[in-house]
């Protein structure tokens, strides 16, 4: 069993090409990479929106907006 395309360094160096494992599966790797990239943006967008929503919720409570504007301590639980 070998994941690479060569098994030793003893032969002619000109016979050695790609060094990474699973040569031939590059297309699949790119698809996985693209999914990771696009998925990250979707996740980040949701996370950022939820964060702003929580922040604004916190600011609406009690006197939090005034406190935050004055640079005083504001907790999510306040």
């Amino acid at each position: 069993m070998s994941t690479g395309s060569f098994e030793n360094w003893h032969g002619n160096m000109l016979d050695i090409g790609p060094l990474y494992p699973f040569v031939g599966s590059e297309g699949l790797m790119i698809i996985l990479g693209l999914v990771f990239w696009i998925g990250w943006h979707i996740w980040q967008h949701r996370m950022e929106s939820a964060n702003y929503k929580d922040d604004m919720e916190t600011l609406r409570h009690n006197d939090n907006m005034n406190r935050a504007l004055r640079g005083e301590k504001v907790l999510r639980s306040m």
């Binding site: 160096m13 000109l14 050695i16 790609p18 060094l19 590059e26 990479g33």
Partner: peptide, 16 residues
């Protein structure tokens, strides 16, 4: 191209 073998670690010898 991102799926080409030369966008990875390569010794420069025989291409796959």
């Amino acid at each position: 191209v991102s799926w080409g073998e030369l966008m990875g670690a390569h010794m420069g010898g025989a291409p796959a």
